[in-house]
Design a binder for these strands. Structure first.
Lengths: 212, 212
DNA sequence: ACAAAAGTGTTGGCAATACACCCATGG
DNA sequence: CCATGGGTGTATTGCCAACACTTTTGT
C-alpha cells in the first residue's frame, strides 16, 4: 500500500505540478509524483500528508483522495497498490528540495511540460487535472491555490489556466460576486498602472457551491 | 487489501442495494456489502467482479471504483484497506443466494431501509448513492439498471427513485429525446390500459453526456 | 499626455420550468 | 362507457454569452 500525491500550484499564472526524480531502482532517473508506503496503523490521508511533508517540507491545507491504482504490473519491483491524492498549495516557492530519498524535485507545467513519468503516474496526472478542473466549477477550491489576498484578475487567470480557456472578464466577475464567497479588502495592489482591489475568500474550508 | 461492492438494482420502481449477512467473526450477524480480499497479482476491478460473481452469481456490466477506505480501526480484526466499488444490474431477481461465506443475502431499499451495517459500510452506502445520483445526470448510466427494453415511464420512475424527487413528465421526455441516446422499438408493452412504446438505449457502453 | 490594466451594463437567445388536456386500450 | 395510465404543446422565465467603453494610475 502506497500513497502518491499530485501537488498543484500556480507559478506566474501557470499551473504546475511537483515532481521528484527517482534515485534508485529499475526506474532510476525517471520522474514521478512524491509518495511512499503507508505505515501500519496509519490513516491514508495521514500518509499522504506525511509524504508531502517529507518531500516538500510543507503542510497542505487541501488534500483529497483521487483514485486507487492497483494494477499488479504498475510497479516493476512488486505489487504495490497506490492510492492517489491531489493536494494544493498557494506558493510553489515554499517547497524546499525533497528528502534524500529522491535525486531532485521540481515544478513542471501541466498539461504539456511533464517529462516521461514512472509507473502509471501519467494516468494519475490526468485524473488529478480532471478532478481539479471539475471541482473548480462547483467548489471554492481556488482558495487553496491563491495567496490570502488576490486581485480579481489573478482569480480569473487561475480559472483560465486550469480550465485551459479564456473567460469573459465581466461575466466572470458577475458570477463570482453572485456567489458571495469573497470579501473585498480595504487595501489595493499598486503596480505600474491602475491599482486593483484586493479580495480574499470568506471561508477557507472546502465549500460546495455552483460557481461556473 | 479488500474490495467491497455496493450493488444497486431497481425492484418494482424502488432503488435497492444488495447486502449479505456476516456469518462469523466479531461482527457476526451484521449486514455488509459483499466483498473480500484481493488476491496477489489480481487487478482491483477483477477482484470486485470476482467477489460479485461468488456472492451473487452474476456478471455485472457496470462496475466502477468509488473510494478507498483505509482507517486502521475500520475492521476490528486487522488493518484492512478496502477499495469500494459500485455496480449495477438490471434484474435483482437474478441473484442467487450468496456463497457459503455469508449467512444470508437480500435486497434493501435505499435510502432508509438499510439495517445497521458492519465496518464503515454505512459511509460506503452514502458515497455510492451520491455517485449514482451524480452520474445519472451526466451519463447514460441508467442503461445498466434497466432491462434491454423499457417504457418512458419506467425510465422516468428510475430517475425519480434515484434522485428522490418527481420529475415533470413532458420536460423529462423532451430532454431525454433531445439527447438522441434512445431508439424507439417497433413493439409496445401491453397492459391493463393504453399500451406504452418500448425504447432501448442505442449504446450500452458508458457514455458521458449531459442528460438532466 | 499616453500607455496599460481595472472596472463596469445591456441585450438577445436559449434552455428550463410550469402547466392541462386528449388518446388508446382493457375490462 | 369508464377507468387508467400514455402521450403531447405552449407561454413564460431566468440564465448565460456576447460585446466596448470609461476610469485610474504610473511614467
Amino acid at each position: 500500500m502506497a500513497v502518491d500525491t499530485v501537488l498543484f500550484a500556480l507559478e506566474r499564472g501557470r499551473l504546475k505540478a511537483f515532481l521528484v526524480q527517482l534515485k534508485s531502482g529499475p526506474l532510476r532517473g525517471k520522474w514521478s509524483f512524491p509518495g511512499g508506503l503507508v505505515r501500519v496503523g496509519e490513516l491514508l490521508d495521514d500518509a499522504a500528508r506525511r509524504e508531502l511533508r517529507t518531500s516538500t517540507g510543507l503542510e497542505c491545507a487541501f488534500v483529497e483522495q483521487l483514485f486507487t491504482f492497483g494494477d499488479p504490473s504498475r510497479d516493476p519491483r512488486s505489487h504495490v497498490v497506490s492510492v492517489a491524492y491531489m493536494a494544493l498549495i498557494p506558493d510553489p516557492a515554499k517547497v524546499r528540495a525533497p528528502s534524500a530519498k529522491y535525486a531532485a524535485g521540481g515544478w513542471f507545467e501541466v498539461p504539456g511540460e511533464l517529462p516521461p513519468l514512472a509507473y502509471d503516474h501519467a494516468l494519475m496526472a490526468d485524473y488529478a487535472l480532471a478532478r481539479l478542473k471539475a471541482k473548480l466549477s462547483y467548489t471554492n477550491i481556488a482558495a487553496f491555490v491563491l495567496p490570502r489576498s488576490f486581485t480579481f484578475k489573478e482569480l480569473e487567470d487561475l480559472y483560465a489556466a486550469i480550465l485551459g480557456r479564456t473567460l469573459d472578464r465581466r461575466n466572470f466577475r458577475r458570477r463570482i460576486q453572485a456567489m458571495g464567497l469573497l470579501k473585498k479588502l480595504p487595501h489595493k495592489r499598486y503596480g505600474p498602472h491602475r491599482p486593483a482591489a484586493l479580495y480574499s475568500f470568506q471561508k477557507t474550508t472546502p465549500q460546495v457551491v455552483q460557481i461556473l
